[in-house]
Amino acid sequence: MVDPLLRVEKLVRRFGGVLATDNLSLDVLPGELHAIIGPNGAGKTTLISQLTGQLTPNSGAIHFAGRDITRLPSYRRSRLGLARSFQITSLLPDFTAADNVALAAQAHDGHSFRFWGAARREKHLREAAQAALNRVGLARRGDVPVSELSHGEQRELELAVALATRPQMLLLDEPMAGLGATESARMVALLKELRQEVTIVLVEHDMEAVFALADRITVLVYGRVIASGAPDAIKSNEEVRRAYLGEQHAVTSHG
């Protein structure tokens, strides 16, 4: 058996009386695309945030590449190769698309206590940014300020930013949320490509996409894992059908 790249053990996170993560354990193997599904409020975003360090768990442990990262701040986890996209787009609105990506590349290219040379003229940073933009289909949108990008473009930029940190593991929180049909299809195609290169944890409501992409699926309900396994096993799992897949239509319509 290969060692998991990410190992989550008995994670607990409360918000007041709400148990958003309830004694959750999970393994993600190197190279796999691991989807996490579950109804709204199941605790998917809360889980991702604990994995990348925006939130700290009340108890439990997170190991990444054999290292205990439970208490590491998010910037240190980024250096270790964890990158995320946010469900609610979180970019630098006053900067251009290329600047957003170049800053992500810069964070992983030596230190940034350089006070004199013009950062926008550092060729390799600009090239890295352009490469990531090309990747997500924003090749010609580099000079556009984020605030002028469409919602779909911002979603793609989220992904480009994460890619520019050259991660070992990508955690994508509903990358297709709010995308139109063509944009969604493009995103699925892109994820199919990316999964060859990087381990992916994908939170997604679009079941078609999930079953097309995932090697394994974990189902969350009320912060608990109710099932985890190959797509076929999940599809035929009685508890999953009752708790979740049965109401899939209600869920997808929430977007």
Partner: peptide, 27 residues
């Protein structure tokens, strides 16, 4: 010079969205 340097870009990025800057690796 500072504002246009690597350092300056980071500082302005943090002003714009601190959480995002932390998430891509900046303390």
């Amino acid at each position: 010079r500072i504002v246009n340097s690597r350092f300056g870009m980071v500082v302005q990025g943090i002003r714009s969205n601190e959480q995002r800057m932390q998430a891509i690796g900046y303390h």
